[in-house]
Measured scan of single mutants.
Amino acid sequence: DTINITLPDGKTLTLTVTPEFTVKELAEEIARRLGLSPEDIKDTHNGKTLDPSLTLAEYGITPGSTITLEIK
């Protein structure tokens, strides 16, 4: 299953994830792909900052969802 990550420059990154991924694991994968530190990444969905300890499923993030990435 894939989700879309909207980057600060407007580009989109597509990642393969499972509903059990935590937001922290997602940030780590994004950081790895972009050459950043996971601590520099802030993920938001529907205007809410995502708690790193919760899973994508707990936020109702499903395949095809879009998450907005902010760099701290």
Rank of each mutant, 00 (worst) to 15 (best):
T2D: 05
T2W: 14
N4A: 08
I5Y: 00
L7M: 11
D9L: 05
D9F: 07
D9E: 05
D9Q: 05
D9I: 03
T12R: 09
T14Q: 11
T14A: 08
L15P: 00
L15W: 02
T16V: 12
V17L: 06
T18S: 07
P19T: 04
P19E: 05
P19R: 05
E20W: 07
E20C: 07
T22Q: 01
T22H: 01
V23C: 08
V23I: 11
K24I: 05
E25T: 04
E25Y: 03
E25S: 06
E25R: 08
L26A: 03
L26W: 01
L26C: 03
A27W: 15
E29F: 12
E29R: 04
E29V: 11
I30A: 02
R32Q: 08
R32K: 11
R32Y: 06
R33Q: 10
R33D: 02
L34I: 10
L34D: 00
L34P: 00
G35R: 04
S37F: 11
S37R: 10
S37D: 11
S37V: 11
S37E: 11
P38C: 15
D40I: 11
I41F: 12
I41C: 13
K42S: 13
T44M: 12
T44P: 14
T44F: 14
H45M: 13
N46T: 13
G47V: 06
T49L: 11
T49P: 11
L50P: 05
D51H: 05
D51P: 05
D51L: 05
D51A: 04
D51T: 05
S53P: 02
L54V: 10
L54C: 11
L54F: 08
T55G: 02
L56D: 00
L56R: 00
A57P: 04
A57H: 08
E58S: 06
G60T: 01
I61W: 10
T62I: 12
T62R: 03
P63E: 07
P63W: 02
P63G: 08
G64R: 01
G64Y: 01
G64F: 01
S65E: 04
S65L: 05
T66V: 08
I67A: 01
T68Y: 14
L69A: 05
I71N: 05
I71W: 09
I71D: 04
I71K: 05
K72D: 13
K72Q: 11
